[in-house]
Design a binder for these strands. Structure first.
Lengths: 141, 141
DNA sequence: TTATTTTCTAGTATTCCACTTGGAATAATT
DNA sequence: AATTATTCCAAGTGGAATACTAGAAAATAA
């Protein structure tokens, strides 16, 4: 029960892009180095992020990636959804009614899982890359 | 990013035991039938739950399982922890410092994941099997 | 033209999930 | 004593997902 590396790496990579927002394109290599993970793997994550419209790319020498809008306009939710698909704490909540709990009396756990999912969403909906950048600055001082 | 069937089935199975609390041992077969999932698989879940001290067993004919204490004294958290190990939204939070985010400036995502995890725990710590049973009764009426 | 970058496609080793199988031990019933 | 119902135990398994790697093609700047 945990976020995969896609989500974890992805948010960190986007944070690095946010820190450099407005400074032109940044190469995958630079991002991968600043967080020490594989650039070939990161490339795949960026493909998903681009498809979701969160980043833009420039090919060729001096090319790279950059956020497609201001850090404050990109939420953690959007990043995770792009990389992992929407978080579903239980198949019950996202899937069809009665998917797992067939004979149970109108599934007593369904609402519980739903409540958890909503509490997660409430947090990641209201947290933007700008918040992370600001937090990073505070930490460095 | 979701609870495995272990957690989902496990909570449902414990709910069935809670409904029958005080009525003597209940067999795996009966529980599995009331929720329509494999009894051989459920057996494994019960082994973990027993090891965690949440249920007691009686072998032989007319044997079975029962909760080892009142439904109100068993939280959803305890059940999930027994079956899946403690929930960790990210390896960052449970694992050693800097596990993933090595070069990052004191990892800005760490606190975010921690916050999410704590909000999940807050919910499942404060929900007991008794709550589920009561909720089930309300639904049936 | 060369170096640097994204882009695309495919492959792969490992781990995890959701079970299944088969049998031994234990206890109640007949 | 035999039968039946149950837990207990250990191992195996097929498929999917994870976390990558490899290699080559296309685009662009210098």
């Amino acid at each position: 029960m945990r976020l995969s590396t896609k989500g974890q790496y992805g948010v960190l990579a986007m944070y690095e892009l946010a820190k450099r927002y407005g400074e032109g394109p940044v190469s995958i290599k630079e991002i991968a180095e600043s967080q020490t993970f594989s650039d070939a793997y990161l490339e795949q994550l960026f493909a998903s992020l681009k498809k979701a419209g969160l980043i833009r790319s420039l090919r060729g020498a001096h090319g790279g990636y950059q956020l497609s809008r201001e850090p404050s306009q990109i939420s953690i939710r959007q990043i995770i959804d792009a990389l992992e698909g929407p978080i579903e704490f239980s198949a019950c909540v996202g899937g069809p009614e009665g998917y797992i709990c067939k004979k149970s009396d109108a599934c007593v756990t369904r609402e519980l899982w739903k409540e958890i999912q909503e509490s997660i969403n409430a947090i990641i909906d209201n947290r933007s890359l700008a918040d992370l950048v600001e937090q990073g600055r505070r930490k460095q001082q």
